[in-house]
Amino acid sequence: MARALDKYLRKGLSGTTFCPGCGHGILLGSLLRAVDELGLDIHKTLFVSGIGCAAWIPSPHINADTLHTVHGRAVAYATGAKMANPELTTIVVSGDGDLASIGGNHLIHAARRGIDLTVICANNEIYGMTGGQTAPTTPIDAHTMTDPEGNQYRPFDLAALVLAAGADYVARWPVTRARALTESIKRAISTHGFSFVEALSPCPTQFGRRNQFDSIPALYDDLDAHCVERGTSEAAPATNGPRFEIGEFSRSDLFANGSAEQK
């Protein structure tokens, strides 16, 4: 992390608890760069998180008000705090299991209300902290502790989910494209309304080692190879497996892919 961002980090911490190769540190960097470049008053900014590895991105690392809640409820806690004090820039940072499984109902209702919240979802496609179980974002055929023969159920498309629920700003980037991620976090925070940024953040410990990735760079290369930036001539991924459309999304995109009959 650049020394320039040290001022946002809580004193007295010896390091992060993230595993080697975890993408969450890059996301923390992107988030703090966004805070810095926007010139946010950190003492009027509230970071809310749930339970899981991603919930530890803001708490305790960021030297601001942090609310580390119970599993799945971060968005509901944030809603109460923001309603009670609208001057608080309120940013939720949590994982895909926390926000989209146990907390899925709170997520879509917050998107529906359009209260001024920014939700950043660190999507590692698996439950990391609890030991590598299938998440609602786990790709079909991926191996997990609870699906050792491969997951048979479709993953959520989180961007489409929150868009359909009414989100005002939605973007998705892998942490391998940190500059674009930072810019989207800035736009999300600046948007008055419900904003959602999905950060694809690899988990070598729980996902990589169960899915035949021999090294951390191999996992990152694979993620990047499966991302196709919207509105560019980037080639579709050559390999099998999940394909992520990345970039910014709008409501008009909702039925663009394979659902023409719903137009």
Binding site: T69, G80, A81, K82, M83, H109
Partner: peptide, 16 residues
């Protein structure tokens, strides 16, 4: 949206 969210919002508001 439900009572879990209600008490969650309550606690967030108390700290605000």
């Amino acid at each position: 949206e439900d009572e879990i969210a209600s008490i969650s919002a309550l606690i967030g508001a108390a700290w605000a």
